[in-house]
Design a protein around this nucleic acid. Structure first.
Length: 406
RNA sequence: GCAGAGGUGGCGGAGUGGUCAAACGCAUCAGACUGUAAAUCUGACUCCUUCGGGAUACACAGGUUCAAAUCCUGUCCUCUGCACCA
Protein backbone atom coordinates (compact mmCIF):
# COMPACT_ATOMS: atom_id res chain seq x y z
CA UNK A 1 0.00 0.00 0.00
CA UNK A 2 1.46 3.27 -1.08
CA UNK A 3 1.33 6.03 1.48
CA UNK A 4 0.41 9.45 0.22
CA UNK A 5 1.58 12.64 1.85
CA UNK A 6 -0.97 15.01 0.35
CA UNK A 7 -0.34 18.23 2.28
CA UNK A 8 -3.94 19.36 1.93
CA UNK A 9 -5.33 16.23 3.54
CA UNK A 10 -2.68 16.26 6.24
CA UNK A 11 -3.50 19.84 7.01
CA UNK A 12 -7.19 18.98 7.21
CA UNK A 13 -6.55 16.05 9.52
CA UNK A 14 -4.57 18.27 11.85
CA UNK A 15 -6.81 21.31 11.88
CA UNK A 16 -10.39 20.82 10.82
CA UNK A 17 -12.76 20.24 13.69
CA UNK A 18 -9.87 19.36 15.95
CA UNK A 19 -9.99 20.27 19.59
CA UNK A 20 -6.58 18.95 20.52
CA UNK A 21 -3.94 16.43 19.60
CA UNK A 22 -1.84 14.74 22.20
CA UNK A 23 1.08 14.75 22.72
CA UNK A 24 1.15 17.36 19.93
CA UNK A 25 0.08 18.16 16.40
CA UNK A 26 3.71 18.12 15.37
CA UNK A 27 4.05 14.53 16.52
CA UNK A 28 1.12 13.47 14.36
CA UNK A 29 2.32 15.56 11.47
CA UNK A 30 5.76 14.03 11.42
CA UNK A 31 4.23 10.59 11.69
CA UNK A 32 2.07 11.30 8.65
CA UNK A 33 5.01 12.68 6.74
CA UNK A 34 7.28 9.80 7.63
CA UNK A 35 5.79 7.63 4.90
CA UNK A 36 5.18 4.85 7.35
CA UNK A 37 1.83 3.12 7.23
CA UNK A 38 0.11 3.73 10.53
CA UNK A 39 -2.90 2.24 12.23
CA UNK A 40 -5.81 4.48 13.24
CA UNK A 41 -9.05 3.64 14.90
CA UNK A 42 -12.18 5.03 16.45
CA UNK A 43 -14.61 3.07 18.55
CA UNK A 44 -18.36 3.33 18.24
CA UNK A 45 -20.55 1.87 20.96
CA UNK A 46 -23.85 0.57 19.62
CA UNK A 47 -25.91 1.92 22.48
CA UNK A 48 -28.63 3.27 20.19
CA UNK A 49 -30.21 1.82 17.09
CA UNK A 50 -28.59 4.37 14.84
CA UNK A 51 -25.47 6.42 14.48
CA UNK A 52 -25.95 10.12 14.77
CA UNK A 53 -24.38 13.18 13.30
CA UNK A 54 -21.89 13.50 16.12
CA UNK A 55 -20.31 10.27 14.95
CA UNK A 56 -19.65 11.65 11.50
CA UNK A 57 -16.99 13.99 12.87
CA UNK A 58 -14.60 11.17 13.65
CA UNK A 59 -15.63 9.21 10.58
CA UNK A 60 -14.52 12.05 8.32
CA UNK A 61 -11.15 11.92 10.00
CA UNK A 62 -10.95 8.18 9.47
CA UNK A 63 -11.81 8.65 5.83
CA UNK A 64 -8.97 11.14 5.42
CA UNK A 65 -6.53 8.72 6.98
CA UNK A 66 -7.85 6.02 4.71
CA UNK A 67 -7.37 8.19 1.65
CA UNK A 68 -3.74 8.65 2.58
CA UNK A 69 -3.38 4.90 2.51
CA UNK A 70 -3.22 4.22 6.22
CA UNK A 71 -4.72 1.27 8.02
CA UNK A 72 -8.08 2.37 9.40
CA UNK A 73 -10.10 0.36 11.89
CA UNK A 74 -13.76 0.96 12.56
CA UNK A 75 -14.21 -0.59 15.97
CA UNK A 76 -17.68 -1.58 17.03
CA UNK A 77 -17.77 -1.43 20.80
CA UNK A 78 -20.24 -4.24 21.16
CA UNK A 79 -18.78 -5.28 24.49
CA UNK A 80 -18.21 -1.83 25.93
CA UNK A 81 -21.71 -0.81 24.93
CA UNK A 82 -23.05 -3.34 27.36
CA UNK A 83 -21.16 -1.86 30.28
CA UNK A 84 -21.86 1.72 29.40
CA UNK A 85 -19.57 4.68 29.12
CA UNK A 86 -19.90 7.00 32.09
CA UNK A 87 -18.80 10.04 30.05
CA UNK A 88 -21.00 13.04 30.73
CA UNK A 89 -23.44 11.01 32.71
CA UNK A 90 -24.34 12.47 36.04
CA UNK A 91 -25.53 9.11 37.18
CA UNK A 92 -24.65 5.56 36.37
CA UNK A 93 -26.47 4.07 33.48
CA UNK A 94 -28.36 0.96 32.78
CA UNK A 95 -26.41 -1.89 31.30
CA UNK A 96 -27.59 -3.18 27.95
CA UNK A 97 -28.22 -6.78 27.15
CA UNK A 98 -26.36 -8.64 24.47
CA UNK A 99 -29.53 -8.80 22.41
CA UNK A 100 -30.11 -5.07 22.55
CA UNK A 101 -26.57 -4.44 21.42
CA UNK A 102 -26.84 -6.86 18.53
CA UNK A 103 -30.03 -5.19 17.43
CA UNK A 104 -28.37 -1.79 17.49
CA UNK A 105 -25.33 -2.98 15.61
CA UNK A 106 -27.17 -3.99 12.50
CA UNK A 107 -27.32 -0.67 10.75
CA UNK A 108 -24.01 0.75 11.88
CA UNK A 109 -21.91 -0.44 9.03
CA UNK A 110 -24.30 0.69 6.34
CA UNK A 111 -24.65 4.10 7.93
CA UNK A 112 -20.94 4.55 8.38
CA UNK A 113 -20.32 3.74 4.75
CA UNK A 114 -22.10 6.93 3.78
CA UNK A 115 -19.13 8.82 5.16
CA UNK A 116 -16.34 6.30 5.01
CA UNK A 117 -15.55 4.20 1.99
CA UNK A 118 -15.38 1.05 4.03
CA UNK A 119 -15.20 -1.40 1.15
CA UNK A 120 -12.81 0.63 -0.96
CA UNK A 121 -10.92 -1.66 -3.35
CA UNK A 122 -7.46 -0.34 -2.74
CA UNK A 123 -7.58 0.48 0.92
CA UNK A 124 -10.62 -0.91 2.71
CA UNK A 125 -11.46 -0.19 6.31
CA UNK A 126 -11.19 -3.01 8.79
CA UNK A 127 -14.25 -3.52 10.96
CA UNK A 128 -13.59 -5.13 14.33
CA UNK A 129 -15.68 -5.94 17.38
CA UNK A 130 -14.15 -5.52 20.80
CA UNK A 131 -16.07 -8.43 22.30
CA UNK A 132 -13.56 -10.54 20.38
CA UNK A 133 -10.91 -9.92 23.00
CA UNK A 134 -12.73 -8.36 25.94
CA UNK A 135 -15.03 -11.31 26.37
CA UNK A 136 -12.08 -13.64 26.75
CA UNK A 137 -10.48 -11.91 29.70
CA UNK A 138 -10.67 -13.68 33.01
CA UNK A 139 -10.59 -12.11 36.42
CA UNK A 140 -6.85 -12.49 36.72
CA UNK A 141 -6.29 -10.68 33.44
CA UNK A 142 -8.58 -7.92 34.54
CA UNK A 143 -6.79 -7.41 37.83
CA UNK A 144 -3.55 -7.36 35.94
CA UNK A 145 -4.90 -4.58 33.72
CA UNK A 146 -6.47 -2.68 36.57
CA UNK A 147 -3.18 -2.63 38.41
CA UNK A 148 -1.82 -0.31 35.75
CA UNK A 149 -4.15 2.43 36.91
CA UNK A 150 -4.57 4.25 40.16
CA UNK A 151 -7.68 5.59 41.78
CA UNK A 152 -6.01 8.99 41.82
CA UNK A 153 -5.78 8.88 38.05
CA UNK A 154 -9.41 7.97 37.79
CA UNK A 155 -10.74 10.64 40.08
CA UNK A 156 -8.79 13.28 38.23
CA UNK A 157 -11.49 12.92 35.69
CA UNK A 158 -13.81 15.87 35.79
CA UNK A 159 -17.07 14.04 35.91
CA UNK A 160 -15.95 11.67 38.62
CA UNK A 161 -14.74 14.62 40.63
CA UNK A 162 -18.07 16.34 40.22
CA UNK A 163 -19.85 13.29 41.48
CA UNK A 164 -17.52 13.14 44.44
CA UNK A 165 -18.30 16.75 45.21
CA UNK A 166 -22.02 16.29 45.16
CA UNK A 167 -21.80 12.94 46.94
CA UNK A 168 -23.13 10.87 44.09
CA UNK A 169 -22.14 7.24 43.81
CA UNK A 170 -19.32 6.16 41.55
CA UNK A 171 -19.22 2.46 40.80
CA UNK A 172 -16.06 0.48 40.32
CA UNK A 173 -17.46 -0.79 37.04
CA UNK A 174 -17.33 2.74 35.76
CA UNK A 175 -13.63 2.82 36.36
CA UNK A 176 -13.38 -0.22 34.14
CA UNK A 177 -14.58 1.55 31.04
CA UNK A 178 -11.41 3.53 30.31
CA UNK A 179 -9.42 0.40 31.09
CA UNK A 180 -11.33 -1.58 28.52
CA UNK A 181 -10.89 1.13 25.96
CA UNK A 182 -7.21 1.16 26.72
CA UNK A 183 -7.07 -2.58 26.27
CA UNK A 184 -8.69 -2.19 22.85
CA UNK A 185 -5.75 -0.02 21.85
CA UNK A 186 -3.27 -2.58 23.04
CA UNK A 187 -4.99 -5.45 21.28
CA UNK A 188 -5.17 -3.59 18.00
CA UNK A 189 -1.75 -2.09 18.48
CA UNK A 190 -2.79 1.26 17.09
CA UNK A 191 -0.77 4.39 16.49
CA UNK A 192 -3.59 6.89 16.58
CA UNK A 193 -6.99 7.02 18.20
CA UNK A 194 -9.70 9.37 17.02
CA UNK A 195 -12.63 10.44 19.15
CA UNK A 196 -14.71 13.34 20.38
CA UNK A 197 -13.25 15.58 23.02
CA UNK A 198 -15.63 14.04 25.54
CA UNK A 199 -13.65 10.84 25.04
CA UNK A 200 -10.37 12.45 26.00
CA UNK A 201 -10.07 10.78 29.35
CA UNK A 202 -10.79 7.34 27.99
CA UNK A 203 -8.42 7.86 25.11
CA UNK A 204 -5.66 8.98 27.43
CA UNK A 205 -6.13 5.88 29.52
CA UNK A 206 -5.33 3.90 26.41
CA UNK A 207 -2.29 6.04 25.83
CA UNK A 208 -0.88 5.13 29.22
CA UNK A 209 -1.68 1.49 28.85
CA UNK A 210 -0.20 1.05 25.41
CA UNK A 211 2.89 2.85 26.66
CA UNK A 212 3.40 0.43 29.50
CA UNK A 213 2.39 -2.70 27.61
CA UNK A 214 3.92 -2.13 24.21
CA UNK A 215 6.27 0.73 24.94
CA UNK A 216 4.67 2.73 22.20
CA UNK A 217 3.32 6.23 22.07
CA UNK A 218 -0.24 6.41 20.88
CA UNK A 219 -1.40 9.72 19.49
CA UNK A 220 -4.81 10.97 20.53
CA UNK A 221 -6.85 13.11 18.20
CA UNK A 222 -9.76 14.74 19.99
CA UNK A 223 -12.45 16.29 17.82
CA UNK A 224 -14.51 19.36 18.61
CA UNK A 225 -18.00 18.81 19.88
CA UNK A 226 -20.95 20.55 18.36
CA UNK A 227 -21.97 22.98 21.02
CA UNK A 228 -24.36 25.85 21.40
CA UNK A 229 -23.21 29.26 22.53
CA UNK A 230 -23.72 28.48 26.18
CA UNK A 231 -21.53 25.45 25.85
CA UNK A 232 -24.14 22.76 26.20
CA UNK A 233 -23.72 19.84 23.94
CA UNK A 234 -26.11 19.80 21.06
CA UNK A 235 -28.64 17.10 20.65
CA UNK A 236 -28.64 15.74 24.13
CA UNK A 237 -32.36 15.49 23.83
CA UNK A 238 -33.70 12.89 21.48
CA UNK A 239 -35.79 15.34 19.54
CA UNK A 240 -32.98 17.46 18.23
CA UNK A 241 -30.32 14.90 17.62
CA UNK A 242 -29.81 14.31 13.95
CA UNK A 243 -29.79 10.60 13.41
CA UNK A 244 -28.35 8.84 10.41
CA UNK A 245 -31.67 7.20 9.69
CA UNK A 246 -33.71 10.39 9.81
CA UNK A 247 -35.52 11.32 6.62
CA UNK A 248 -33.90 14.06 4.52
CA UNK A 249 -36.72 16.40 5.51
CA UNK A 250 -36.06 15.75 9.18
CA UNK A 251 -32.33 16.30 8.83
CA UNK A 252 -32.87 19.53 6.96
CA UNK A 253 -35.41 20.74 9.46
CA UNK A 254 -33.28 19.90 12.45
CA UNK A 255 -30.37 21.85 11.05
CA UNK A 256 -32.68 24.79 10.45
CA UNK A 257 -33.54 24.64 14.14
CA UNK A 258 -29.87 25.14 15.05
CA UNK A 259 -29.06 28.21 17.05
CA UNK A 260 -27.25 30.80 14.94
CA UNK A 261 -24.08 30.47 16.95
CA UNK A 262 -23.79 26.88 15.79
CA UNK A 263 -23.69 27.66 12.08
CA UNK A 264 -19.97 28.13 11.66
CA UNK A 265 -18.97 25.23 13.83
CA UNK A 266 -21.58 23.24 11.93
CA UNK A 267 -19.71 23.88 8.68
CA UNK A 268 -16.41 23.05 10.27
CA UNK A 269 -17.44 19.94 12.11
CA UNK A 270 -20.31 18.42 10.19
CA UNK A 271 -19.43 18.92 6.54
CA UNK A 272 -16.65 18.24 4.09
CA UNK A 273 -16.00 21.92 3.52
CA UNK A 274 -12.39 22.94 3.46
CA UNK A 275 -10.98 25.23 6.10
CA UNK A 276 -10.87 27.97 3.49
CA UNK A 277 -14.56 27.52 2.79
CA UNK A 278 -15.35 27.60 6.47
CA UNK A 279 -13.45 30.86 6.75
CA UNK A 280 -15.51 32.24 3.87
CA UNK A 281 -18.76 31.33 5.58
CA UNK A 282 -17.55 33.03 8.70
CA UNK A 283 -16.66 36.09 6.72
CA UNK A 284 -20.08 36.19 5.10
CA UNK A 285 -21.82 35.86 8.42
CA UNK A 286 -19.76 38.63 9.96
CA UNK A 287 -20.40 40.93 7.04
CA UNK A 288 -24.06 40.82 7.92
CA UNK A 289 -25.50 38.21 5.61
CA UNK A 290 -28.75 36.73 6.82
CA UNK A 291 -27.83 33.80 9.08
CA UNK A 292 -30.90 31.99 7.83
CA UNK A 293 -29.54 31.83 4.29
CA UNK A 294 -26.25 30.41 5.52
CA UNK A 295 -28.07 27.95 7.67
CA UNK A 296 -29.96 26.76 4.63
CA UNK A 297 -26.69 26.13 2.85
CA UNK A 298 -25.49 24.21 5.87
CA UNK A 299 -28.67 22.21 6.03
CA UNK A 300 -28.44 21.35 2.36
CA UNK A 301 -24.83 20.33 2.66
CA UNK A 302 -25.36 18.12 5.69
CA UNK A 303 -28.45 16.54 4.20
CA UNK A 304 -26.76 15.74 0.92
CA UNK A 305 -23.69 14.27 2.59
CA UNK A 306 -25.78 11.95 4.70
CA UNK A 307 -28.34 11.10 2.07
CA UNK A 308 -27.84 12.40 -1.47
CA UNK A 309 -27.79 15.57 -3.49
CA UNK A 310 -31.25 15.00 -4.94
CA UNK A 311 -32.71 14.15 -1.57
CA UNK A 312 -31.25 17.34 -0.18
CA UNK A 313 -32.74 19.37 -3.03
CA UNK A 314 -36.10 17.86 -2.34
CA UNK A 315 -35.78 18.44 1.38
CA UNK A 316 -34.94 22.06 0.82
CA UNK A 317 -37.81 22.53 -1.59
CA UNK A 318 -40.08 20.89 0.92
CA UNK A 319 -38.84 23.07 3.72
CA UNK A 320 -39.18 26.27 1.76
CA UNK A 321 -42.63 25.62 0.45
CA UNK A 322 -44.13 24.10 3.55
CA UNK A 323 -42.56 26.13 6.31
CA UNK A 324 -41.51 29.33 4.66
CA UNK A 325 -44.13 29.94 2.00
CA UNK A 326 -46.81 27.85 3.64
CA UNK A 327 -47.74 26.22 0.38
CA UNK A 328 -49.42 22.91 0.27
CA UNK A 329 -49.02 21.60 -3.21
CA UNK A 330 -45.87 19.76 -2.24
CA UNK A 331 -45.27 16.18 -1.51
CA UNK A 332 -45.23 15.74 2.23
CA UNK A 333 -44.33 12.61 4.17
CA UNK A 334 -47.09 10.08 4.03
CA UNK A 335 -48.16 7.71 6.75
CA UNK A 336 -50.81 5.09 6.49
CA UNK A 337 -52.89 3.39 9.09
CA UNK A 338 -55.10 0.36 8.90
CA UNK A 339 -58.18 1.77 10.58
CA UNK A 340 -61.16 3.04 8.65
CA UNK A 341 -62.11 5.45 11.38
CA UNK A 342 -60.09 6.71 14.27
CA UNK A 343 -60.37 9.34 16.99
CA UNK A 344 -57.93 12.21 16.55
CA UNK A 345 -55.99 11.56 19.75
CA UNK A 346 -55.44 7.93 18.83
CA UNK A 347 -54.33 8.91 15.38
CA UNK A 348 -51.72 11.25 16.79
CA UNK A 349 -50.33 8.42 18.88
CA UNK A 350 -50.51 6.06 15.94
CA UNK A 351 -48.40 8.28 13.69
CA UNK A 352 -46.02 8.99 16.57
CA UNK A 353 -46.78 12.66 16.87
CA UNK A 354 -47.63 12.08 20.52
CA UNK A 355 -46.44 9.43 22.92
CA UNK A 356 -49.74 8.99 24.72
CA UNK A 357 -53.37 9.88 24.25
CA UNK A 358 -53.09 12.33 27.10
CA UNK A 359 -50.27 14.08 25.37
CA UNK A 360 -52.24 14.12 22.15
CA UNK A 361 -55.11 15.74 23.96
CA UNK A 362 -52.82 18.39 25.37
CA UNK A 363 -51.49 19.19 21.94
CA UNK A 364 -55.01 19.65 20.65
CA UNK A 365 -56.00 21.78 23.62
CA UNK A 366 -53.01 24.00 23.04
CA UNK A 367 -53.88 24.57 19.45
CA UNK A 368 -50.92 22.73 18.04
CA UNK A 369 -52.89 20.36 15.86
CA UNK A 370 -54.24 21.19 12.44
CA UNK A 371 -56.19 18.99 10.07
CA UNK A 372 -56.03 20.17 6.48
CA UNK A 373 -54.93 23.52 7.83
CA UNK A 374 -57.94 23.83 10.09
CA UNK A 375 -57.16 24.08 13.75
CA UNK A 376 -58.53 21.04 15.54
CA UNK A 377 -60.51 21.69 18.68
CA UNK A 378 -61.95 18.29 19.56
CA UNK A 379 -59.30 15.85 20.68
CA UNK A 380 -61.69 12.94 20.34
CA UNK A 381 -63.30 13.79 17.04
CA UNK A 382 -63.65 10.79 14.81
CA UNK A 383 -61.78 10.98 11.56
CA UNK A 384 -62.84 8.98 8.61
CA UNK A 385 -59.66 7.76 6.96
CA UNK A 386 -60.94 5.30 4.43
CA UNK A 387 -63.56 7.33 2.65
CA UNK A 388 -61.86 10.66 2.38
CA UNK A 389 -59.00 12.41 0.71
CA UNK A 390 -55.70 11.89 2.50
CA UNK A 391 -55.73 14.05 5.60
CA UNK A 392 -52.94 16.46 6.22
CA UNK A 393 -52.08 16.42 9.89
CA UNK A 394 -49.84 18.93 11.55
CA UNK A 395 -48.80 18.89 15.20
CA UNK A 396 -46.39 21.63 16.05
CA UNK A 397 -43.45 21.23 13.73
CA UNK A 398 -44.42 17.81 12.59
CA UNK A 399 -46.40 17.33 9.44
CA UNK A 400 -47.63 14.43 7.37
CA UNK A 401 -50.53 13.09 5.38
CA UNK A 402 -52.48 10.11 6.50
CA UNK A 403 -53.96 7.51 4.21
CA UNK A 404 -55.79 4.27 4.65
CA UNK A 405 -53.98 0.98 4.31
CA UNK A 406 -56.10 -2.14 4.16
C1' G B 1 -19.00 -3.39 61.77
C1' C B 2 -20.55 1.16 64.76
C1' A B 3 -22.73 6.12 64.69
C1' G B 4 -25.17 9.99 62.11
C1' A B 5 -27.61 11.92 57.60
C1' G B 6 -30.43 10.63 53.55
C1' G B 7 -33.27 8.10 49.06
C1' U B 8 -39.35 12.88 46.14
C1' G B 9 -41.20 13.85 38.86
C1' G B 10 -35.91 14.12 33.03
C1' C B 11 -32.50 16.97 36.56
C1' G B 12 -31.85 20.19 40.90
C1' G B 13 -34.79 20.87 45.08
C1' A B 14 -39.36 22.17 48.65
C1' G B 15 -42.80 19.47 51.42
C1' U B 16 -42.76 16.14 57.61
C1' G B 17 -50.54 13.24 58.67
C1' G B 18 -55.63 15.76 55.14
C1' U B 19 -56.25 21.80 51.01
C1' C B 20 -50.20 17.07 47.25
C1' A B 21 -50.31 14.46 40.76
C1' A B 22 -46.57 17.29 44.88
C1' A B 23 -44.00 24.71 45.61
C1' C B 24 -39.79 26.84 43.06
C1' G B 25 -35.78 26.58 39.37
C1' C B 26 -33.67 24.11 34.98
C1' A B 27 -34.65 21.05 30.81
C1' U B 28 -38.57 19.70 27.45
C1' C B 29 -43.14 20.44 24.45
C1' A B 30 -46.91 23.80 22.52
C1' G B 31 -49.06 28.89 21.43
C1' A B 32 -47.89 34.30 20.23
C1' C B 33 -43.77 37.00 17.89
C1' U B 34 -40.00 35.33 14.13
C1' G B 35 -35.84 33.20 10.14
C1' U B 36 -38.94 25.83 12.31
C1' A B 37 -32.80 31.20 15.11
C1' A B 38 -32.20 34.00 19.66
C1' A B 39 -34.62 36.96 23.30
C1' U B 40 -39.44 37.81 25.34
C1' C B 41 -44.53 36.73 26.86
C1' U B 42 -48.33 32.70 27.62
C1' G B 43 -49.61 27.73 28.59
C1' A B 44 -48.54 22.57 29.27
C1' C B 45 -45.49 18.85 31.29
C1' U B 46 -47.94 10.29 34.94
C1' C B 47 -51.55 7.40 32.44
C1' C B 48 -56.75 6.35 31.17
C1' U B 49 -61.44 8.69 30.42
C1' U B 50 -68.21 8.44 27.99
C1' C B 51 -64.39 14.94 29.90
C1' G B 52 -68.02 14.37 35.17
C1' G B 53 -63.96 11.93 36.80
C1' G B 54 -60.83 7.53 37.56
C1' A B 55 -56.22 4.69 38.27
C1' U B 56 -51.33 4.52 39.64
C1' A B 57 -47.00 7.41 42.00
C1' C B 58 -42.66 10.40 46.52
C1' A B 59 -36.31 3.61 47.10
C1' C B 60 -38.84 -1.52 48.00
C1' A B 61 -42.22 -4.64 51.11
C1' G B 62 -45.55 -4.63 54.93
C1' G B 63 -48.29 -1.98 59.02
C1' U B 64 -50.99 2.14 61.91
C1' U B 65 -54.98 5.68 60.51
C1' C B 66 -61.35 7.76 58.23
C1' A B 67 -56.81 9.79 55.72
C1' A B 68 -49.53 8.71 54.68
C1' A B 69 -44.45 11.48 50.44
C1' U B 70 -45.20 12.63 55.59
C1' C B 71 -45.93 7.98 61.50
C1' C B 72 -44.14 2.56 62.65
C1' U B 73 -41.40 -2.19 61.20
C1' G B 74 -38.32 -4.76 57.90
C1' U B 75 -35.28 -4.78 53.36
C1' C B 76 -32.14 -2.53 49.74
C1' C B 77 -29.09 1.55 48.33
C1' U B 78 -26.13 6.27 48.93
C1' C B 79 -23.32 9.84 51.74
C1' U B 80 -20.33 11.51 56.15
C1' G B 81 -17.39 10.21 60.45
C1' C B 82 -15.11 6.24 63.22
C1' A B 83 -13.21 1.38 63.04
C1' C B 84 -10.79 -2.25 59.62
C1' C B 85 -5.85 -1.77 56.33
C1' A B 86 -6.39 -8.14 55.14
Amino acid sequence: MEIRKDPEIIERILEKGVEQVLPSKEALKSLLESGKRIKIYQGFDPTADTLHIGHTVGMRKLEDFRKLGHHVIFLVGDFTARIGDPSDKTSARQMLTKEQVEENMKLYKEQASRIIDIDNKENPVEVLYNSEWLEKLNFGDIIQLASKFTVQQMIKRDMFRKRLEINKPIYISEFMYPIMQGYDCVMMNVDVEVGGNDQLFNMLAGRDLIMSELNKEKIVLAGKLLATSDGTKMGKSEGNMIKMNDTPEEIFGKVMAFTDSMIISGFEILTNSTMQEVANYKQRLESGENPMALKKELAHMITSEITSEEEADKAQEYFESVFQNKEQNVEIPEKSIDKEEIPLNELLVNIEFASSKSEAKRLVDQGAVKINDQKATQFNQILNIKNSQPLMIRAGRKLCTVTYRS
